Amino acid sequence: MEVRTIKVFTTVDNINLHTQVVDMSMTYGQQFGPTYLDGADVTKIKPHNSHEGKTFYVLPNDDTLRVEAFEYYHTTDPSFLGRYMSALNHTKKWKYPQVNGLTSIKWADNNCYLATALLTLQQIELKFNPPALQDAYYRARAGEAANFCALILAYCNKTVGELGDVRETMSYLFQHANLDSCKRVLNVVCKTCGQQQTTLKGVEAVMYMGTLSYEQFKKGVQIPCTCGKQATKYLVQQESPFVMMSAPPAQYELKHGTFTCASEYTGNYQCGHYKHITSKETLYCIDGALLTKSSEYKGPITDVFYKENSYTTTIK
C-alpha cells in the first residue's frame, strides 16, 4: 500500500517557510505537534488534498525554529505562539472599519479597549522592536488589523473576551517599542525636605499616572512627601515624541487643539466601556464603527496623549 502524501510549508514567522512532505494517514499533531492554519487549530486533523502548498504555523520545537521565533517575536515564552494563534482565530472574524481616516474595530468580545489602543497607536510616533509587531502594525494602518490585535493580546497575556485596560495595554506595548531616546527629568520640591531631581528613561519617561493635564504637570502637581507634608512635583525636561497622561476616570474637559487623542471610560472596574476622542479640525468621538463630532467635550476621561518633541522648564 502506497503512502499518500502532500507537500506543505511549516513556519513560526510566515517569513521562513520549511518544506514538509506530510503523510495523509496521520494527523498534523502526530507529525508536527500543535499546528495552526489561519489561526485555526488543526492539530487533530489529517492532511487533505486542499492543504497542498498551504502554510501551517507550528510551535518552535527545534533550534532553527526557536531562533526564527525569537528573532521575529522577541520572546522565548513557549506558550506565546499558541496564544497568538488562538487569538487570531477570533480577531480574523472582527470587522476593521476605516473611521475618520483611522483603522478602528467594530465592537465584539469586549474589544473596546483594543480599538482605543489601536486608534491611539496610529496617532503617536512609535516604532516597535519585534519585527512581528512592526509588520502587523503597518498592515493594521492599511486596514488589516487582525494579526496586530492578536499579537497585542498575546504580548499582554490576554484572551479574547476578557476586559482590558488601555493604560495597561499601552504599557505592555511600550515595553516592546523603541523608547531608548526618551528621557524625563522631574523635580520634587518640599518646604521641609528641599528639592530632589529624578531622571527617568524609556517607558517611565512617557507615562504618568495622577493627572490628565500635561500643562498642569509642567506647572506642578501636589504629591505627598515622605515627611508627610505636601510637596510639588513638576516637569523639568521632556525628550520624547509623545507623552501619555493618565488618571482614574473623572469628568474632564478636553479643549480642541490642546491634545492629540484621549480615552474615555464609562462604567466601573468590573464592567465598563471605552471610547476614543481625537482632536482634528474639530473633536471626534470614535466608538467602534461609530463616529460623532463636537466642538467641545466633557466626560469621564482616563488617558490623554500629547505630541511632544523637546521641553525644558522655565521655572527657576
Results as ranks from 00 to 15, higher is better:
residue 232 T to Q: 08
residue 36 Y to T: 06
residue 301 I to Q: 01
residue 264 E to A: 10
residue 282 T to K: 10
residue 178 N to S: 12
residue 313 T to S: 13
residue 296 E to C: 12
residue 135 D to A: 11
residue 293 K to N: 12
residue 125 E to K: 09
residue 204 E to A: 13
residue 223 I to V: 13
residue 41 D to G: 07
residue 68 E to R: 10
residue 278 T to V: 09
residue 247 A to Q: 06
residue 232 T to M: 13
residue 241 P to R: 08
residue 273 H to M: 01
residue 87 A to R: 04
residue 276 H to N: 04
residue 194 G to V: 04
residue 102 L to C: 05
residue 220 G to P: 10
residue 295 S to W: 12
residue 315 I to Q: 06
residue 80 F to A: 03
residue 44 K to H: 12
residue 283 L to Y: 02
residue 238 Q to F: 01
residue 69 A to M: 09
residue 189 V to D: 14
residue 96 Y to R: 04
residue 177 A to I: 05
residue 307 K to W: 06
residue 138 Y to K: 15
residue 115 A to F: 05
residue 76 T to N: 09
residue 43 T to V: 08
residue 281 E to M: 00
residue 291 L to R: 06
residue 6 I to S: 07
residue 316 K to Y: 14
residue 120 T to G: 04
residue 150 A to I: 01
residue 201 K to T: 13
residue 170 M to D: 00
residue 81 L to Q: 09
residue 252 Y to W: 11
residue 269 Y to L: 13
residue 167 R to C: 04
residue 39 G to H: 13
residue 167 R to P: 02
residue 149 C to R: 03
residue 278 T to G: 06
residue 65 L to E: 08
residue 238 Q to E: 01
residue 189 V to I: 14
residue 305 F to T: 01
residue 72 Y to M: 15
residue 181 S to A: 10
residue 23 D to P: 09
residue 13 D to M: 05
residue 173 L to P: 01
residue 216 Q to R: 10
residue 238 Q to A: 02
residue 166 V to A: 11
residue 198 T to L: 11
residue 284 Y to P: 01
residue 50 S to L: 11
residue 168 E to D: 07
residue 76 T to K: 14
residue 74 H to R: 12
residue 162 E to T: 06
residue 253 E to F: 09
residue 264 E to G: 06
residue 168 E to A: 09
residue 107 W to K: 03
residue 276 H to S: 04
residue 4 R to E: 15
residue 187 N to W: 08
residue 149 C to F: 02
residue 214 Y to M: 08
residue 39 G to Y: 12
residue 24 M to C: 12
residue 180 D to E: 10
residue 26 M to I: 11
residue 155 Y to G: 00
residue 302 T to W: 00
residue 303 D to S: 04
residue 281 E to I: 04
residue 12 V to S: 11
residue 246 S to C: 06
residue 48 H to F: 12
residue 95 K to G: 12
residue 95 K to Y: 15
residue 88 L to K: 06
residue 118 L to Y: 06
residue 41 D to S: 11
residue 164 G to E: 00
residue 45 I to H: 06
residue 245 M to H: 01
residue 219 K to T: 13
residue 148 F to E: 01
residue 228 G to W: 01
residue 130 P to R: 03
residue 19 T to R: 15
residue 194 G to H: 04
residue 285 C to P: 00
residue 167 R to I: 01
residue 28 Y to D: 05
residue 103 T to A: 06
residue 299 G to H: 01
residue 124 I to M: 06
residue 265 Y to M: 00
residue 221 V to N: 03
residue 191 K to R: 15
residue 237 Q to G: 07
residue 161 G to Q: 03
residue 220 G to N: 01
residue 14 N to I: 10
residue 201 K to I: 13
residue 180 D to Q: 12
residue 31 Q to F: 15
residue 189 V to S: 14
residue 45 I to A: 13
residue 243 V to D: 00
residue 95 K to P: 05
residue 24 M to Y: 09
residue 213 S to K: 02
residue 141 R to Y: 07
residue 128 F to T: 02
residue 233 K to L: 14
residue 230 Q to K: 14
residue 288 G to Q: 00
residue 162 E to L: 03
residue 122 Q to L: 05
residue 221 V to Q: 07
residue 259 F to D: 00
residue 99 V to I: 08
residue 229 K to S: 14
residue 41 D to M: 11
residue 232 T to S: 08
residue 72 Y to Q: 10
residue 210 G to I: 00
residue 117 A to C: 09
residue 220 G to Y: 02
residue 166 V to N: 01
residue 176 H to V: 07
residue 27 T to Y: 13
residue 194 G to R: 05
residue 264 E to W: 01
residue 253 E to L: 15
residue 94 W to I: 05
residue 242 F to W: 11
residue 36 Y to K: 05
residue 285 C to Q: 13
residue 53 G to K: 11
residue 272 G to E: 00
residue 115 A to D: 04
residue 35 T to W: 06
residue 181 S to P: 07
residue 279 S to E: 01
residue 153 L to G: 04
residue 58 V to Q: 07
residue 157 N to A: 07
residue 250 A to T: 12
residue 72 Y to E: 10
residue 306 Y to M: 01
residue 171 S to W: 15
residue 233 K to T: 09
residue 155 Y to V: 04
residue 83 R to D: 06
residue 58 V to P: 05
residue 20 Q to V: 14
residue 52 E to P: 10
residue 116 T to M: 04
residue 114 L to S: 04
residue 59 L to K: 14
residue 54 K to Y: 15
residue 121 L to P: 03
residue 145 A to D: 02
residue 32 F to T: 15
residue 68 E to V: 07
residue 77 D to E: 12
residue 252 Y to N: 03
residue 180 D to I: 07
residue 5 T to P: 14
residue 49 N to M: 14
residue 115 A to P: 02
residue 203 V to Q: 11
residue 209 M to Y: 14
residue 302 T to A: 08
residue 28 Y to R: 04
residue 224 P to H: 15
residue 160 V to M: 03
residue 68 E to Y: 08
residue 261 C to I: 02
residue 287 D to S: 02
residue 149 C to Q: 01
residue 156 C to A: 10
residue 26 M to L: 10
residue 264 E to T: 05
residue 51 H to N: 10
residue 220 G to F: 01
residue 129 N to S: 09
residue 194 G to A: 04
residue 258 T to C: 08
residue 171 S to Q: 11
residue 218 K to A: 06
residue 221 V to L: 12
residue 35 T to I: 07
residue 207 M to L: 07
residue 224 P to K: 10
residue 294 S to H: 14
residue 49 N to W: 07
residue 266 T to R: 08
residue 256 H to Y: 13
residue 275 K to C: 08
residue 139 R to Q: 14
residue 90 H to F: 10
residue 137 Y to A: 08
residue 120 T to R: 03
residue 125 E to Q: 12
residue 134 Q to T: 12
residue 176 H to M: 14
residue 256 H to W: 14
residue 312 T to S: 10
residue 189 V to P: 02
residue 207 M to D: 01
residue 112 C to S: 03
residue 199 T to H: 10
residue 10 T to N: 13
residue 163 L to I: 03
residue 295 S to R: 11
residue 242 F to P: 01
residue 12 V to G: 09
residue 25 S to T: 09
residue 6 I to K: 10
residue 167 R to T: 04
residue 219 K to Y: 07
residue 135 D to H: 10
residue 301 I to E: 00
residue 6 I to E: 06
residue 313 T to D: 15
residue 187 N to C: 12
residue 90 H to D: 08
residue 178 N to H: 08
residue 129 N to A: 09
residue 159 T to I: 09
residue 197 Q to V: 14
residue 268 N to D: 12
residue 172 Y to R: 14
residue 177 A to L: 03
residue 251 Q to W: 14
residue 249 P to Y: 00
residue 55 T to P: 08
residue 99 V to W: 15
residue 251 Q to R: 11
residue 17 L to R: 08
residue 12 V to H: 07
residue 148 F to R: 02
residue 243 V to Y: 01
residue 95 K to N: 14
residue 198 T to C: 09
residue 15 I to M: 11
residue 210 G to M: 00
residue 33 G to Y: 04
residue 184 R to A: 11
residue 39 G to N: 11
residue 134 Q to F: 07
residue 169 T to Q: 03
residue 88 L to Q: 05
residue 99 V to Y: 10
residue 7 K to L: 09
residue 296 E to K: 15
residue 186 L to Q: 15
residue 244 M to W: 02
residue 269 Y to G: 09
residue 272 G to K: 00
residue 91 T to I: 04
residue 108 A to C: 12
residue 86 S to W: 14
residue 140 A to V: 13
residue 221 V to P: 02
residue 277 I to D: 00
residue 309 N to T: 09
residue 30 Q to A: 14
residue 176 H to F: 13
residue 96 Y to P: 01
residue 105 I to W: 03
residue 159 T to V: 12
residue 264 E to D: 06
residue 25 S to Y: 10
residue 101 G to L: 04
residue 248 P to H: 07
residue 14 N to V: 07
residue 267 G to K: 05
residue 296 E to W: 10
residue 281 E to G: 06
residue 283 L to V: 10
residue 259 F to M: 00
residue 69 A to R: 06
residue 247 A to T: 06
residue 269 Y to D: 08
residue 129 N to R: 10
residue 264 E to N: 04
residue 31 Q to M: 15
residue 76 T to Y: 07
residue 174 F to E: 02
residue 119 L to T: 01
residue 78 P to C: 10
residue 282 T to E: 10
residue 51 H to P: 04
residue 42 V to C: 14
residue 112 C to Q: 05
residue 240 S to P: 00
residue 158 K to R: 07
residue 208 Y to N: 07
residue 81 L to F: 12
residue 263 S to Q: 00
residue 199 T to W: 06
residue 61 N to V: 14
residue 140 A to H: 04
residue 316 K to S: 11
residue 167 R to F: 05
residue 209 M to C: 10
residue 245 M to C: 11
residue 247 A to D: 02
residue 305 F to G: 01
residue 69 A to Q: 15
residue 65 L to C: 09
residue 17 L to V: 10
residue 87 A to D: 03
residue 187 N to V: 14
residue 68 E to P: 07
residue 98 Q to N: 11
residue 27 T to D: 14
residue 14 N to T: 08
residue 42 V to L: 13
residue 268 N to Y: 07
residue 68 E to Q: 11
residue 260 T to F: 06
residue 72 Y to F: 09
residue 42 V to N: 10
residue 132 A to I: 03
residue 73 Y to R: 02
residue 122 Q to Y: 01
residue 241 P to S: 09
residue 9 F to A: 07
residue 10 T to P: 06
residue 112 C to E: 02
residue 204 E to Q: 15
residue 142 A to D: 14
residue 306 Y to H: 00
residue 28 Y to T: 04
residue 196 Q to A: 12
residue 211 T to K: 01
residue 112 C to D: 04
residue 123 Q to K: 03
residue 87 A to M: 06
residue 73 Y to I: 02
residue 40 A to C: 10
residue 166 V to W: 03
residue 27 T to K: 13
residue 151 L to T: 03
residue 255 K to C: 09
residue 191 K to F: 07
residue 51 H to D: 12
residue 243 V to T: 03
residue 107 W to D: 02
residue 170 M to Q: 01
residue 132 A to D: 02
residue 25 S to I: 07
residue 120 T to W: 01
residue 174 F to R: 03
residue 175 Q to R: 15
residue 133 L to I: 06
residue 116 T to L: 04
residue 205 A to W: 01
residue 171 S to L: 12
residue 63 D to E: 15
residue 178 N to I: 05
residue 160 V to H: 05
residue 281 E to F: 00
residue 289 A to I: 07
residue 264 E to S: 07
residue 74 H to G: 11
residue 54 K to I: 15
residue 139 R to M: 12
residue 286 I to H: 04
residue 198 T to W: 13
residue 155 Y to L: 04
residue 147 N to V: 12
residue 313 T to P: 07
